[in-house]
Simulated scan of single mutants.
Amino acid sequence: MTNRFTELLESRDVLLADGATGTNLFAMGLQSGDAPELWNTDKPENIKALYQGFIDAGSDMFLTNTFGGTAARLKLHDAQSRVGELNRIGAELGREVADKMDRAVIVAGSVGPTGEIMEPVGELSHALAVEMFHEQADALKDGGVDIIWLETISAPEEFSAAVEAFKLADMPWCGTMSFDTAGRTMMGVTSHQMAKLVTDYENAPLAFGANCGTGPADMLRTVLGFSSQDTGIPIISKGNAGIPKYLDGKIHYDGNPELMGEYAVMARDAGAKVIGGCCGTMPDHLHKMREMLDSTPRGEAPTLEGVVKAMGAFSSESDGTETSGCCSGCGGDEKPARGRRGRRRG
């Protein structure tokens, strides 16, 4: 399948994605607990400024402000009846910003987890999950996104429900999981298992990978795990800007622009084709990532020892890829661990 995303990807060594939605909107005045998606209608100029900031920093693509745009998430804010409106407008604002540029910029429709646990561990049925993701995907399509971008998923069952919905919406898609629990997702998926999962879909992703997690070191280990599986599908790396620390009543990320620039180069050398930032990543980080990707010659894939030396220690001794079991969503025998409700991105 060819579209704007694949055409741009084929013409570049790597694509620079965007940074954090939440962190940047908090800097604009969004309050903790508020739904960012409501700003699509309440403060559209702020959302356009968010998108423009990523582009001005050198991003080749950005995600729409629709991460929590399913009915399940919007219900927490009594906005479950506004799924179509909020997602469509979030996409239209992105289209407006991207289309005025004199270079190609991809608008990716962000789709995050429902926040519910799926059967049989939880109560969310496959059919209802597909229905909610389909409603959101249709609205993003109506708003003009180039691709659907599934992110921060931890359960293979929820990932697969979303993929089914994207097929119903007839939309190309990319997908990332968050490997934030000893190198696995909260529901027990390893990088190797995700690589198998995406290759088994009839409507394969245009790219797959990881976002968020616990810091650049763990993200790079995960990317190396994807690369070792040689799926032939482009890899995505969207790591946090360092490690979160609680200071003066607020969460701060300790990664400076230089660290994120080095992370971007190492992610490219590890095999990633789409590289960006997640929580804590601001335009200053992206500026440096763009600069270093453009000025640093491609090198050999980093070793795990090299990653630790450059990025700091891993959060866990193992990421689970040394075992041969497979998560339940991939058809194997290993059962996923119980997880908590999905969180917001950035």
Rank of each mutant, 00 (worst) to 15 (best):
Y263K: 14
P257D: 02
G271I: 09
M266N: 06
K250Y: 12
V274T: 11
D284F: 00
G249A: 05
M292A: 08
M266L: 15
L259P: 04
P244Q: 03
N240M: 12
G276Q: 09
A270Y: 08
G239S: 15
K288A: 08
A270S: 14
D248F: 01
K245V: 09
D254V: 00
H285C: 10
I243Q: 13
G249T: 02
G271K: 10
A270M: 13
A270T: 12
G261W: 00
L293N: 02
Y263H: 14
P283I: 04
H285L: 08
L293Q: 07
L293W: 01
M260E: 06
V274S: 12
G276T: 12
R290N: 11
V265F: 09
D254A: 07
A267V: 15
A264M: 07
K250E: 15
V265D: 02
E258Y: 11
D254C: 05
N240E: 08
A270I: 13
P257R: 07
P244D: 05
C279P: 07
L293P: 04
R268E: 05
V274W: 07
D248A: 12
G239I: 00
M282A: 01
G249S: 11
R268W: 13
G239H: 01
G255P: 12
G277D: 04
L247M: 12
M289V: 11
P257L: 07
Y246N: 14
G280M: 04
A270K: 13
P283Y: 00
H252W: 03
L293G: 02
A272F: 14
G276Y: 13
A270E: 10
C278E: 09
G280V: 02
E262A: 15
Y253R: 06
L259D: 00
M260T: 11
I275R: 06
K273N: 10
G239V: 01
D248V: 03
H287V: 11
P244V: 03
T281V: 14
M260A: 14
Y246W: 14
M266W: 08
V265K: 08
G239M: 04
G277N: 06
I275F: 10
M289T: 14
P283D: 01
G255Q: 01
A267T: 13
M266Q: 10
P257E: 01
E291Y: 05
M289F: 09
M282P: 01
G249M: 03
V274M: 14
K288W: 00
N240W: 02
D254F: 04
E291P: 07
G239W: 00
H252S: 13
L286A: 07
Y246M: 15
A241C: 12
V274F: 15
A241Y: 05
Y253A: 09
H252F: 03
A264K: 05
P283H: 06
G271N: 07
N256E: 04
E262K: 15
T281S: 15
N256G: 13
D254Q: 07
G276N: 14
V265L: 11
K273V: 08
G261H: 03
G277I: 02
L286V: 07
V265M: 05
D269T: 11
D248L: 04
G239Q: 02
C279S: 10
Y253E: 12
K273F: 08
I275Y: 07
K288G: 01
A272N: 13
P244W: 01
